[in-house]
């Protein structure tokens, strides 16, 4: 490969919008989460896990984790783009982070649905 600067990947807008959309969702979720937690009848493990058990809030919690991971993916990729110059290392780090985040998403689903 000749050493030339190449740009023009023709993406960026989707991620930029995704980062904003997930941020807004996470803010809304955080408010709902705080309200729900404050309205718990008692601070016990049963009440706490019951908050996430099934139903709408459990679904929102899972969405929150997906939003968090997508948001984190874009942010971490941005950091790699700025600081990791060799393409090979950057690609390897991208793959590692992607696998980790997908794994975390599965783990979050498992935790939420076994409650």
């Amino acid at each position: 490969m000749v050493k030339r600067i190449v740009v023009g990947a023709h993406y960026g807008l989707r991620d930029w919008m995704g980062q904003r959309a997930t941020a807004i969702f996470m803010v809304i979720y955080t408010v709902l989460f705080a309200l729900n937690a404050l309205m718990l009848p008692e601070m016990s493990h049963e009440a706490w896990s019951g908050m996430f058990k099934g139903g709408f809030f459990g679904f929102l919690t899972f969405l929150f984790f997906l939003a968090l991971f997508y948001h984190a993916w874009i942010g971490v990729r941005d950091i790699f783009m700025d600081y990791i110059k060799p393409t090979g290392i950057r690609l390897a780090l991208h793959v590692v982070v992607l696998f980790l985040l997908v794994g975390y998403a599965g783990w979050a689903a498992q935790i939420l649905w076994r409650l």
Partner: peptide
Amino acid sequence: DNLEDPYRLFR
């Protein structure tokens, strides 16, 4: 089109 790029604009 020229600017729709993670580096050129979205940095």
